[in-house]
Design a binder for these strands. Structure first.
Length: 509
RNA sequence: GGCGGUGUAGCUCAGUUGGUCAGAGCAUCCGGCUCAUACCCGGAGCGCCGGGGUUCGAAUCCCUGCACCGCCA
């Protein structure tokens, strides 16, 4: 392991306000960032906004604002949401940042110098709102946009092209050698067959779009939004301006994307990098989409889930937990109130929260809140379970299998509850001879709680912190590598705990 | 139309290279416990899309039919 981990979300297009889809990607990225920090790695976590393009200019016009005014407003909504979701990003990049504009222009020039960018002419059917050209084949004879259904315009214009076609073979070779480059596997197969079909040169500039980054030396052209947007991943790591930063984090990049924008990240982006002579990111992971109450989310249906509302009603950690636990990362999922309440009550209140609560309650009741490390508290079953859970937890986290990773943590929770029932401290306490054994039982459970706090911190930072505070061991979070302390025997000499308060009161269904 | 994938308990899904792989969670039913947030623990029932084949043995491989999904055209 090289000790560096660069994790990115896409930069979100600001013609839309944040919804559950944005929250999902960003939450997953945050979980990864926190997890890798807890392993003692150097982590760079970036998110941001994509602010150029015709659509933005138009939306601004409709709202009676300048484009800059519009994007400045919408950006705040994203930043506010991330704050409320406890998103620990290191960098928030905006494509209107001057630094980014410089990076894009110099990248453009670099590719031009290398002969991968040329001037040509583009002709085709164009959808203005979608800013997309369509080929005759894609239209099946109808002159409306396959995406939005609006009429198309015949457009013929001078354009700069990126010689994407030259990268068909190199990219295929790269995919052959890096079967983990695109995940999940089903997406890898899609990309592979797409590339195998042969890549075509890509138009990367537009005439007449004012709201964008000008082509260097030819300011009538602005750079195509995707070409502009993808380069943000380089701007963030200081490409062309901060050598040390760049060498620390490139190419340890892991890009999280929705499945709808996978192709830009798995085909265009790597080709751009190959053209520039740069190494490719480690991984592009495409996750699924959320439906709501079984239906596709859409503005017209009015069923768009507002993350702020969910947080206000249920709390941030229930939301984060649900997103990460309910579906396998990579697959589609359904967001329903019933599922949310059930998941939250069953996992967080009944199993996890209650285990902590009953443990602390007994420690308080039987031992006045203090349990010293007993002389012999080893327990073979606990040790074997922890070892297996930890190993599998790490494996799943490395594969971005959040739900499965959490499933492993819950094996500890379940075992804790069973252990408690089997040992029945409420009976032990009646027999003074069993006093020492009672200490062992309670200490093991507290120590288990300590580890749960660490394992769960990436997913539910607020709750995990609270738990560790209850246990009086929150210092562990300041350690260079808290995950390495998740082992028996590494607990404190004395647990001095706070009086218990339920971590997750049950929700009324 | 081409390529790829999926079809496993009532629901959501795990099942690496064929031989404790017939499982988990939720739901249902039965029993137990009472420290706890009417929680927790234990037990039970029900299942490998249809058909054919390979094999000593297949959810797992092959063929075929049906259904659904994704990408491309």
């Amino acid at each position: 392991m090289d000790g560096s981990f660069y994790i990115t979300t896409p930069i979100y297009y600001v013609n839309d306000v944040p919804h559950i889809g944005h929250a999902y990607t960003t939450c997953a990225a945050d979980v990864l960032a926190r997890f890798h920090r807890m392993r003692g790695e150097r982590v760079l976590f970036s998110t941001g906004t994509d602010e150029h393009g015709q659509k933005i200019a138009k939306a601004a016009q409709d709202a009676g604002l300048t484009p800059q005014e519009l994007v400045d407003r919408v950006v705040l909504r994203f930043q506010d949401l991330w704050k409320r979701m406890h998103i620990s990003y290191d960098v928030f990049i905006r494509t209107t940042d001057p630094e980014h504009e410089r990076t894009v222009q110099s990248f453009f020039l670099l590719l031009k110098e290398k002969g991968y960018i040329y001037k040509g002419e583009y002709e085709g059917w164009y959808c203005v709102p979608c800013e997309t050209f369509w080929t005759e084949a894609q239209l099946e004879g109808r002159l409306v946009c396959p995406d939005c259904g609006r009429p198309l315009e015949r457009l013929r214009e001078e354009s700069y092209f990126f010689a994407l076609s030259k990268f068909t073979e190199p990219l295929l070779r790269y995919l052959d050698e890096h079967p983990d480059f695109v995940m999940p596997e089903s997406r890898f197969n899609e990309i592979y067959s797409f590339v195998k079909g042969g890549l075509k040169d890509q138009s990367i500039s537009r005439l007449g779009v004012r709201w964008g980054i000008p082509v260097p030396g030819d300011p009538n052209h602005t750079i195509y939004v995707w070409f502009d947007a993808l380069i943000n991943y380089l701007t963030v790591v200081g490409f062309g301006r901060d050598r040390e930063l760049f060498e620390t984090f490139w190419p340890s990049a892991h890009h999280l994307v929705g499945k709808d924008i996978l192709r830009f990240h798995a085909v265009l982006w790597p080709s751009m990098l190959l053209a520039a002579g740069l190494p490719l990111p480690r991984r592009v992971f495409a996750h699924g989409w959320w439906t709501v109450e079984g239906e596709k989310m859409s503005k017209s249906k009015g069923n768009v889930v507002d993350p702020l509302e969910v947080i206000a009603r249920f709390g941030v950690d229930r939301f984060r937990y649900f997103l990460m636990r309910e579906v396998s990362f990579g697959l589609d999922g359904d967001f329903s109130e019933r599922a949310f309440v059930e998941r939250s009550n069953a996992d967080l209140s009944d199993n996890f929260g209650n285990l902590i609560h009953r443990t602390l309650n007994m420690v308080w009741k039987y031992r006045n809140g203090r349990v010293a490390k007993p002389s012999r508290y080893e327990d073979r079953e606990w040790e074997e379970l922890l070892q297996e859970v930890r190993e599998r937890f790490f494996t799943f986290m490395d594969r971005f299998a959040f739900s499965q990773a959490l499933g492993e943590v819950w094996r500890l929770v379940h075992f804790g509850n069973r252990y408690l029932d089997q040992k029945a401290p409420w009976r032990m306490v009646q027999d003074p001879i069993l006093g020492e054994e009672l200490d062992r039982v309670l200490y093991r459970l507290l120590d288990c709680g300590r580890m749960l706090g660490v394992f769960l911190f990436p997913f539910m930072p607020e709750t995990a912190t609270r738990l560790l505070q209850y246990l009086g061991v929150e210092e562990i979070l300041k350690d260079h590598n808290p995950l390495a302390l998740c082992d028996w025997g590494k607990g404190p000499s004395v647990f001095s705990v706070a009086q218990p308060e339920p971590l997750f009161p049950r929700l009324q269904g």
